[in-house]
Design a binder for these strands. Structure first.
Length: 492
RNA sequence: GGGCCCGUAGCUCAGUCGGUAGAGCAGGCGGCUCUUAACCGCAAGGUCAGGGGUUCGAACCCCCUCGGGCCCGCCA
């Protein structure tokens, strides 16, 4: 490993520490409380006042040091926030005080013991009567004011991004809390969480190119799943009635601000219910998430805005009516594929002319409607030609029972009343195989056979967890909510 | 896959017309008992992403490679 001059200096301090018989990497720091506890105890104090009682112990990362001769101020970060330490020569003694200043650096992990106090300038603080080095940082932290800005460095060295950025820490905590609350909500609604296989012989349930790998034992090629749908529906056939899975899916496609080759999907299937029941479930889930996020992370402005938006509830629009209203086009369901192709062309689409007609309608919707779906919005009852795998609408010809929902122009989820007629399912698989490239569409015979045993009428939904996290944290890119997103080449 | 842009000190960034490298932070030394991007003084710190070319001379112009960002395409 190469070493910069800065690291050389810090190593020299470690050596000095050891030469004095002190351990630069001790084992523990018992009795420590979060810095938030100290801030709370400072609240009743006036500026310049110190709390009485037993001393308290805090631990965290040193972010900044401001040395003023015989008094020094240090900012200590822990997961609960930041706290100022006040270190005084008259409390530690001159030798200890000078020694600390010589050997401490920003980035070091330190423990401090002392009494809560509010500085004369009004800053909640801990007046240290004792300091301990808990782990020396050899590598210097990023610049204290701007932090780590380079997006590549931030994702390749996520640990540095996290230690330098309370916002980044908050975003990943938010993601974790969203998943936890989602589980609580679904468990409370009587759903069973299951885990199905990631490694499969044939990745189905969507139209995406799979990753492939090989089992040395089976001497067979395997694929990484692209969706959770087909195995979960087989569980409905098996009588599990209400199931969900939260798990990684993999699609061998390019990445952009809303797509990652490796992403986390929530899929949920609910027997004897339809897509209107699912709508109610989704509304309840997002209202609950909004409440919890509002409680947990009120300090993140984008999180507060999202929480408010979802607390206000969803708008509902009809796919065809909204598209016609915004585009000025009329009677879209009656148009020929050729007419739809011309409309899509006029709207700037470059999809191939021989695409299925549903593709042109999707492109028109993307062009005329999607960008304006900034508040939470359900889009209902898509044209059947855009959605070959949903159940046809019970009363609206040419439509399917489906909704998607959007926030800030981004699709967050997609729900159907599920197709459970085995013969129709077989027919649609066959049509797809004929219309599309073979390698992009799996024809899962075992799934069709499963439907022959009878799958109860059911509704299902897929919700992208990464996008959920983006929505609730205001992250502009999916990479901001994935701890270690795929990056080209070696991490140096 | 196509287009545009970016890569300079550990970090954040300047760098003019092609004339041989700058600041702030961090770190070192000195000063300072209420600062919070602390402040003041001194000194130090560079494979200008990598390679090739043009030129008397390249961080700067040209070509290639690597990595990244944005837009488009692809992607129920």
């Amino acid at each position: 490993m190469d070493e910069t001059p800065l690291e050389h200096e810090r190593r020299a301090k470690v050596a000095r520490w050891r030469s004095q018989g002190r351990e630069p990497y001790p084992w523990s720091f018992p009795g420590r409380v979060p810095t938030e506890t100290v801030r709370a105890r400072c609240r009743p104090l006036a500026a310049g006042e110190e709390a009485g009682g037993e001393p308290v112990r805090v631990a965290g990362r040193l972010r900044a040091l401001r040395v003023h001769g015989k008094t020094a101020f240090a900012d200590l970060d822990d997961l609960s926030g930041a706290l100022q330490l006040i270190v005084r020569e008259d409390l530690l003694g001159e030798a200890a005080y000078r020694g600390w200043l010589a050997d401490l650096d920003s980035g070091d992990l330190v423990g401090a013991e002392g009494r809560p106090a509010v500085s004369r300038r009004g800053e909640p603080s801990l007046v240290a009567s004792r300091l301990e080095l808990l782990a020396k940082a050899i590598a210097p932290p990023p610049e204290k004011y701007h932090g780590l800005q380079d997006p590549e460095e931030r994702l390749r060295h996520r640990h540095v991004d996290l230690l330098a950025s309370a916002e980044s820490r908050a975003r990943f905590r938010a993601r974790s809390l969203l998943v936890r609350e989602t589980r609580h909500y679904l468990d409370g609604a009587g759903f069973l969480e299951v885990e199905t296989s990631t490694l499969v012989p044939l990745a189905g349930g969507g139209a995406a190119r799979p990753f492939t790998t090989r089992s040395a034992y089976l001497a067979e090629e395997l694929q990484l799943r692209i969706a959770l749908e087909l195995p979960l529906k087989r569980l409905l056939v098996g009588g599990l009635e209400r199931v969900y899975e939260i798990g990684k899916c993999f699609r061998n496609e390019d990445l952009d601000s809303t797509h990652s080759p490796e992403f986390t999907m929530l899929e949920l299937y609910w027997a004897y219910a339809d897509y209107r029941d699912m709508q109610a479930l989704v509304e309840g889930l997002y209202r609950r998430l909004a409440e919890r996020m509002g409680e947990i992370l009120p300090e993140v402005p984008a999180a507060r805005a999202a929480a408010q938006a979802f607390a206000d509830g969803f708008a509902s629009i009809d796919f065809v009516e909204e598209l016609e209203r915004r585009s000025g086009l009329t009677r879209l369901l009656e148009r020929s594929p050729e007419e739809l192709r011309q409309y899509a062309r006029a709207a700037g689409s470059t999809v191939p002319d021989d695409s299925p007609p549903g593709v042109f309608l999707d492109k028109l919707f993307e062009h005329y409607v999607e960008p304006d779906l900034s508040r939470p919005t359900f889009v209902f009852d898509h044209p059947a030609v855009t959605t070959p795998l949903a159940k046809r609408h019970r009363s609206r010809p040419g439509r399917v029972e489906r909704f998607e929902f959007y926030y800030r122009g981004m699709e967050l989820g997609n729900a159907y009343t599920e197709l459970n007629d085995p013969d129709e399912q077989l027919l649609r698989f066959q049509e797809q195989s004929a219309a599309r490239e073979e390698d992009r569409y799996a024809f899962d015979e075992e799934f069709v056979r499963a439907l022959r045993y009878g799958m109860p009428p059911a509704t299902g939904i897929g919700i992208g967890i990464d996008r959920m996290a983006m929505a609730f944290t205001g992250a502009p890119s999916i990479k901001d909510v994935i701890l270690f997103p795929l990056a080209r080449g070696r991490t140096a």
